[in-house]
Design a binder for these strands. Structure first.
Lengths: 123, 123
DNA sequence: CGGTATCCTACACGATACTG
DNA sequence: CAGTATCGTGTAGGATACCG
């Protein structure tokens, strides 16, 4: 059970980017880490209401493997693991800003509840 | 079997936007229609190598319902149906440009084959 | 605290056949 | 040409239990 992302070959850039952000919680993880800089596992869990440990771990591992997320493990008791974005993770986030704004506009137009989360580009 | 997209409530704008572009061929359909302006069913089919009629129809219907695509039916024999982007479809495409560029860069970095398709932002 | 392991379900996607 | 109908499959995602 290693990888969800296909890792190419891709038909176009959108295809390649979507391969890396698809996953129910990845967008949120990106925003959360971008906003707070560094987050612990339990903090991310609280920030993503409804996520299971399994999915959070799995997404985090895939994003780490995709070079988006850095995982820092501290040899302490109780254990502490801190997650943060890599440079590529931050540039991806930048690239997602217009899309986030579009989505927020659309949700507003359609009358859907788009709960504002810290860092949301749509204001 | 009507809808794949959830139509909210969404957690943030990215969530809302991703709900509308997720689907194996939707990104490509967007690019194809944006590039050519108007495309017939069979033309789209040829532009998306490997897509089945079922998936193409399904994606097109969902995108129509999401207000992204306009479907024009001509009462002729043989039948003719033309697809084009709505205003919202075009703004979505604009919002996807940076993401496409990011994906192209990434594919290049990682050495994956990112086949250039007409309209690709990274090209 | 920060995970793994196991089992299960829903559904996105695909293949094939048929129709106005 | 532009679909619809039906069936089959892979896998993303979820529930629960256990571990260092």
């Amino acid at each position: 059970m290693a990888r969800a992302p296909r890792r190419g070959p891709y038909i176009c850039g959108i295809d390649a980017a979507l391969d890396v952000v698809s996953g129910k919680w990845k967008g949120l993880i990106l925003w959360e880490l971008d906003t707070h800089g560094v987050r612990r596992f339990a903090e991310l869990r609280r920030a993503l209401p409804g996520v299971s440990e399994k999915m959070l771990t799995q997404h985090l591992r895939e994003m780490e493997e995709d070079g988006l997320v850095h995982r820092e493990v501290y040899a302490e008791v109780p254990p502490r693991v801190e997650y943060s974005l890599t440079g590529h993770g931050r540039t991806l986030n930048q690239a997602l800003v217009p899309l986030g704004a579009w989505g927020t506009q659309r949700a507003r137009r359609e009358g859907f509840a788009a709960v504002e989360v810290a860092g949301d580009a749509g204001g």
